[in-house]
Design a protein around this nucleic acid. Sequence first.
DNA 1: TTACTTTTTTAGTCTTGTCTAAATATATTT
DNA 2: AAATATATTTAGACAAGACTAAAAAAGTAA
Lengths: 218, 218
Amino acid sequence: MYSDSEENYLKAIFHLERFSKEGVSTNAIAEQMQTKASSVTDMLKKLADKKLVNYIKYQGVTLTNQGKKTAASIIRKHRLWEVFLVEKLDFSWDEVHEIAEQLEHIASEKLVDRLDKHLDFPKFDPHGDPIPSKDGTFPERNKVLLSTLKAGESGICVGVKDTSTSFLKFLDKNGIALGITISVLDREEFDGSLEIKVGDEKMTISQLISSNLYLKTN
Amino acid sequence: MYSDSEENYLKAIFHLERFSKEGVSTNAIAEQMQTKASSVTDMLKKLADKKLVNYIKYQGVTLTNQGKKTAASIIRKHRLWEVFLVEKLDFSWDEVHEIAEQLEHIASEKLVDRLDKHLDFPKFDPHGDPIPSKDGTFPERNKVLLSTLKAGESGICVGVKDTSTSFLKFLDKNGIALGITISVLDREEFDGSLEIKVGDEKMTISQLISSNLYLKTN
DNA sequence: TTACTTTTTTAGTCTTGTCTAAATATATTT
DNA sequence: AAATATATTTAGACAAGACTAAAAAAGTAA
Ligand SMILES: [Mn+2]
Ligand SMILES: [Mn+2]
Ligand SMILES: [Mn+2]
Ligand SMILES: [Mn+2]
């Protein structure tokens, strides 16, 4: 239906739209896609011709309903494949993104449906990110950054904000994974670092760490 | 590493090489790939530059060792994914080829290894075709066409020669699948049709059917 | 061997997606 | 408001992969 490149642009615009009330800028897309602004302009015209984006010269773009629907379907495929790789093929959560970037472009509605069923209809991917349903709705979950908790509070790890390999490997090394309970024992106001308990282990983490971990509080 | 298009050409040449002692002709490739001879010539030059084929103008092509290795790895991926689709996602054997045509181009050695393990290292795909090992060797199996059996002989169905949807659906409808035992009750010499027993059912099949079914005889 | 047919290659064009360099529009300072 | 800086678009080019039409080579028949 759409080329890999078109799909990647739609996905990038979709993600950028969540952080800007205005239309998404050409430069923002260029940075996200690791490409040049002029290439973005070219593609925006093509996507506009296909009614996937609303594009006005110099004003940035927004996705049309069709564009949103398409982007959600690609994100759905990406995250379902990530679940597959972790749950069925024993990949670790820092290895799956690159492969899912390829698998998300495989076109077969039946394949996605069967995969979804095979995985028992997961609602969240290995990084805690929501998997949109077929109609494009994203499951919501109350979650807060670990950095916002006060001493004495605790919660269950349900997601990561930073999904870089180095961060994920750090978490692995320290026994932090989705589903793990984390309690804040003490907070150092000077630098925002936290003393926390992960399982039975006590450790101290920086603000950078705590502001990239999502918890579900009770 | 190589583009989807390059991989598809390598695969086509690989399959055509098995039937011709000479180099594979431009027209043969064009027909197999559903493209024009001039497009094939263009691609052969590119593949020759990359040392994947031995190409001499007007003389046809053969794969180099590197070309053979690459082709085998694509076929390996294609067939492993076909097994996955049938065994894990409950697709029928007539539905998997198209999807595998896409999945075979996903690049990740680790993914293929894990998939292989997940499927318990299958040696043959859902159509009975051999799955090459990592080093490119194809498992061999003694098999004969059902059409070559005499009255009174029998064997186990281990593969199909024609893998078209219509043929596979015909087999499904008549209870013929890999692993099923088929006995030849009688042969009509006039048109080569056979009276056979499939499980407990007796039926008569044309020469066209029997010459597309592979059996392993005892 | 010459004439005719078929196969293969070449020449030139097109589309997609990318790039650089230059032009133009918008935003920010002074 | 004018000058300057930044963002965006345009113009022109390129590579990959495909196509058509024409030329050239190879194969076949008379
Ligand atoms: Mn991902
Ligand atoms: Mn993810
Ligand atoms: Mn197949
Ligand atoms: Mn097959």
